[in-house]
């Protein structure tokens, strides 16, 4: 599966498209990570725990999208967009979507 965030795949020809594919997941942080991040907030810098958590979640969402595209017989997804939004205190939604296409 070729994934791009451009309209086309440079060097390849898109034959047909199968419509929207998407994946989402909602993850909550746990209280341990919360406390660790609270301390880290004092000094600033990267909140490693959260980076990992969101990275994990984004991979899960992407996999769900890829599975959908594969189910349609596509071999590439173009114009992929990611969005992260806080949907509640302590929970974030990772949403990813793109167009499933066939490249020849």
């Amino acid at each position: 599966m070729i994934l791009t965030n451009t309209e086309t795949i440079p060097g390849l020809n898109i034959v047909e498209h199968y419509g929207l594919v998407s994946g989402n997941t909602v993850r909550a942080k746990n209280i341990g990570r919360d406390i660790a991040a609270g301390f880290k907030n004092l000094v600033g810098g990267e909140l490693k725990g959260y980076t990992e958590l969101l990275e994990d979640a984004r991979n899960e969402a992407t996999n769900r999208m890829i599975e959908q595209a594969a189910g349609m017989g596509a071999n590439a997804i173009v114009n992929i967009r990611f969005s992260t939004s806080a949907v509640a205190q302590g929970a974030a939604e990772l949403y990813v979507y793109g167009t499933a296409v066939k490249v020849g």
Partner: peptide, 23 residues
């Protein structure tokens, strides 16, 4: 469920279905 999930962390199924429906 979501409030309890907030303590332990992890996948929040209840939100997933809601947001999937909404989209």
């Amino acid at each position: 469920l979501a409030a309890f999930r907030n303590v332990f962390g992890g996948r929040v199924r209840s939100y997933e279905s809601l947001l999937d429906r909404a989209k």
